[in-house]
């Protein structure tokens, strides 16, 4: 894929951004500001989305407004287009902010999906238990925020079924996911309840390979690819928006398709 050669360039900047993200908020702002003032670390200001806090704040406000607009536009019943087997992209691309050999390796035997938040039953789920859930399948288009797209085949359980099973309060606003490598993602409840939103255990009828997010990927064909977390280890039903890895760095929060 063409996008591969772009990613390394993005990576370095994100590394620095990540370093800044790890700091507490006031420190981070001071860090960026003093860097800008000194002008000595100009490569750091280059990571800023644009020059100046005011413009950046304004753009982020418009982005929040766009979240609302997209939530209004989102239809609980409108399904993402599905495709025949022949349309599947081969090979389906691996994509992350790290290389494939750095992807998390999870031991399926000891794996447990942690459940927390506004749910009745917080018992962790083993893979064997999850694999027994009624299976649904979809061949849909994965659209990356970078612009490229690929068609894949995913099998697993409906997230809405699972939320019902664990007695989740579906009046809550968000579902938050945590991944093995530290990646996080928050999605809106209407999207979580969409019939095509899937807890994916298989890719093209085979147990999800490591590259595609073993053991669990959340497949959401109504959202951009980065809102489809892989290597999911924990899930929380919540009324607090806990953000996400890319969202916190400026990608639009809703990112609906």
């Amino acid at each position: 894929m063409r996008n591969r050669k772009i990613i390394p360039g993005v990576d370095q900047k994100l590394l620095i951004k990540d370093a800044a993200t790890l700091m507490p908020e006031p420190t981070r702002r001071m860090f960026l500001r003093s860097a800008a003032t000194l002008g000595a670390l100009t490569f750091l200001t280059g990571c800023d989305i644009i020059d100046g806090d005011t413009a950046e704040n304004l753009l982020r406000k418009v982005s929040s407004f766009n979240d609302g607009a997209q939530a209004l536009l989102f239809s609980r019943t409108k399904l993402a287009p599905t495709f025949p087997e022949s349309a599947i992209t081969k090979p389906f691309p691996f994509n992350a902010y790290y290389d494939e050999d750095e992807a998390p390796e999870i031991d399926g035997k000891t794996y447990k999906l942690e459940i927390s938040g506004l749910v009745e039953n917080k018992k962790p789920w083993t893979l064997d238990e999850l694999y027994k859930l009624p299976e649904v399948s979809q061949i849909t288009r994965h659209v990356c925020v970078e612009g490229w797209s690929a068609i894949g085949s995913w099998q697993g359980a409906r997230l809405s079924d699972f939320l019902q099973r664990i007695g989740a309060d579906t009046r809550a606003k968000y579902v938050w996911f945590k991944c093995a490598e530290g990646y996080t993602n928050t999605i809106d409840m209407p999207t979580a309840l969409h019939p095509q939103t899937q807890m994916t255990f298989k890719y093209h009828n085979r147990i999800l390979p490591r590259a595609y997010g073993y053991p669990i990927k959340i497949r959401i064909p109504t959202k951009l690819g980065f809102k489809n977390p892989k290597y999911v280890v924990a899930m929380e039903v919540t009324n607090t928006d806990k953000g996400g890895y890319w969202e916190n760095q400026g990608y639009n929060w809703f990112s609906g398709l």
């Binding site: 280059g46 990571c47 989305i49 644009i50 304004l58 982020r60 418009v62 982005s63 990608y251 639009n252």
Partner: peptide, 17 residues
């Protein structure tokens, strides 16, 4: 414009309106 993809997308979907 935008320094990197996220910044560009913020500009694009603001100027869009």
């Amino acid at each position: 414009l935008g320094n990197w993809l996220a910044g560009a997308l913020l500009w694009h979907f603001a100027a869009m309106w």
